[in-house]
Simulated assay, not measured.
Amino acid sequence: MEDQGLAVSQTLPEIFEAVAGKELEHSRTNSEPITPSEDDVAEAERLKTEGNDQMKAENFEAAVSFYGKAIELNPSNAVYFCNRAAAYSKLGNYAGAVRDCERAIGIDPNYSKAYGRMGLALSSLNKHTEAVVYYKKALELDPDNETYKSNLKIAEQKMKETPSPTGGPGGFDLAGLLNNPGFMSMASNLMNNPQVQQLMSGMISGGHNAMGAAGSSPSTNDLASLIQAGQQFAQQMQQQNPELIEQLRSQIRSRTPSASNEEQQE
């Protein structure tokens, strides 16, 4: 109290008010969108076109890079985010695709392709209920898009399916396959093949011996022979029961969302 050199010219409330005012002004400045120059807009378009070319050449990582540079120059263009979402999906980065679709929709809420690509990414993440919502919105904005219609049906079908202990990925009907007499007959013939039995016996005994002695695991030749036997089994199935093979292929195709229209970058 006696040291006048420590005295301040403002009271504590005055200091707080001054600092709070500066923070508010700073946040307003940062939140204001930055308008890109004409040169930046032109360069961003060039980078986007380069990204599209990389997508056509299936260089998806390079496409992501070009779209990212375009976004840095012009972050208010929804197309750039939507295109990068497609590239992310091609790389299996569906979470990244979802984020970019959200950004694109935030910029342009009426951008049908962003909703369609969001649905595709969510379907790939097995979030079929959410995918249905986005496909419906995409169709609302683009009612004649056949890809959206097809993908919506697939998502609705998967949403209604209940997981089965005998079902594989995408609701694959493994139980029906095991109940198919033609398939089981050929599988039985394969397992009764002396060569296959010998290979399986050697691999099993090798596995047991491996716990007690190093280097006694199945050889590469054994594995290659088993793979060859499996390939022969597949060829036998194709020759003896082509209807079953086509049935399985049709089932897989009908459960896979299509990205045909979404591949056309803008």
Rank of each mutant, 00 (worst) to 15 (best):
E72N: 07
E102K: 13
E14R: 08
G68M: 01
Y80K: 03
A18R: 12
N77V: 03
L6C: 07
G92A: 09
F16R: 12
D40W: 01
E102Q: 09
E2Q: 06
E43T: 15
Y94G: 06
L12S: 08
N74L: 01
A97C: 08
S31R: 12
G5K: 09
V8L: 13
K69D: 14
E14L: 12
E23D: 04
T29W: 06
E43A: 15
H26P: 04
R46H: 14
F81N: 03
V41A: 11
A42I: 11
Q54D: 13
N83E: 02
L47G: 11
V19K: 12
K90S: 15
S89P: 04
D100Y: 01
V19A: 11
L73I: 00
A97V: 03
I15P: 02
G5E: 05
G92R: 10
R28G: 12
Y80I: 02
R46Q: 15
C101N: 13
R99W: 00
S37P: 11
N77I: 01
D100S: 05
K22L: 08
G92Y: 09
D40T: 05
N52M: 06
V41G: 01
M55H: 05
L24W: 03
K69I: 00
R103A: 11
E58N: 06
A86T: 07
A85L: 00
D100M: 02
S37Y: 08
M55E: 01
D39G: 13
F81T: 05
P75I: 05
V79H: 03
T35P: 14
A85Q: 00
P75T: 05
Q4W: 10
E14F: 09
V8Q: 13
S76R: 07
E17M: 06
A62T: 05
I34A: 10
